[in-house]
């Protein structure tokens, strides 16, 4: 965690755009959940998505990952429009985790990650029954890759544990490992540190840097301001379904509108909160 990472804008040469969302609008009946939001994610970039509860972050996420079909607007991934179908989105190279952990509870950690390999393998029913050399090779490769990913996220020792028995923090990591198993170019993390203690949060941001360093782009939804301002290259703030501001962490956190959106109009009670928010980067820089 270096200073550059918390304030990176000028240092990094922008890579090619991986994800381009233009004018994404999502309407549920009379409710305008997401209104004309644009977002570009470049190679090797960590982009944060913040906003108060109900701002439409997760809805926007679901539009990106094909769970919802946007009412209007377009999502392009690596230059081609994305079909609004989760499976096709994964196949194209975009994986996600869930806000409320959705692991396959009664499968082992290893099996969970192996399910992630599903879209990159091809053994059909017949090959599985016949068990030819191709099947064995693919199965061995799948196991090896899953094991490797578990070690990458730091779960190398608990491969045979059932997902449901793992501690909360490990479940979050396992979900990330499962998403990584789909060989994505872009990984979207929906509140990866929800419910974590400071130590676990630190480990999570280390892990996200590690993922970025392995060549992936990352989009993170988070509530924890300190976490996101330390982590991200760019931050997009959504309020009531609209993009309020997009910029470097520094720009976003000093924007009075962001503070207002989060904690009201800056009345006396909230002063402490405002201070905390503005202190965040300073503390971040102190940490070695």
């Amino acid at each position: 965690m270096t200073v550059t990472e918390s304030n990176p804008a000028p240092a990094r040469a922008p890579g090619a755009a991986v994800l381009e969302a233009t004018g994404v609008t999502m309407r549920f009946g009379g409710l305008l959940a997401v209104n004309d939001v644009n977002l570009t994610v470049r190679e090797g970039e960590i982009v944060g998505l913040i906003g108060p509860n109900g701002a439409g972050k997760t809805t926007f996420f679901n539009c990106l990952t094909g769970l919802y079909k946007p009412t209007s607007g377009q999502v392009r991934f690596s230059g081609t429009p994305l079909p609004p179908k989760p499976r096709a989105v994964v196949k194209a190279g975009m994986a996600r985790t869930f806000q409320n952990i959705r692991l396959f509870a009664n499968m082992t950690a290893l099996e969970n990650v192996m399910v992630g390999r599903y879209c990159r393998t091809s053994s059909g029913a017949l090959t599985s029954v016949l068990r030819g050399p191709k099947f064995r090779r693919e199965e061995a490769a799948t196991t090896a890759r899953a094991q490797e990913l578990l070690e990458f996220v730091g779960l190398g020792k608990s491969t045979e544990h059932l997902a449901r028995n793992m501690p909360y923090g490990d479940q979050r990591r396992l979900e990330i490992a499962r998403a990584l198993a789909t060989d994505p170019k872009l990984i979207l993390l929906d509140e990866p540190t929800a419910g974590m203690n400071p130590l676990e949060t630190r480990q999570a941001s280390d892990l996200i840097f590690k993922i970025r360093d392995s060549g992936l782009s990352v989009v993170v939804i988070e509530h924890d301001m300190r976490f996101i301002f330390n982590l991200c290259d760019r931050v997009l703030c959504l309020v009531r379904g609209e993009a309020l501001i997009e910029g470097t962490p520094h720009e976003v956190q000093s924007d009075p509108r962001v503070i207002e959106a989060y904690i009201g109009t800056g009345e006396e009670d909230d002063e402490e909160e405002v201070e905390r928010l503005q202190d965040a980067p300073a503390e971040g820089e102190e940490t070695p």
Partner: peptide, 13 residues
């Protein structure tokens, strides 16, 4: 276990 999650992990449900 979880059909939505399976779909989101690329399984042809």
């Amino acid at each position: 276990e979880d059909e939505k999650a399976a779909e989101a992990m690329g399984v042809n449900t």
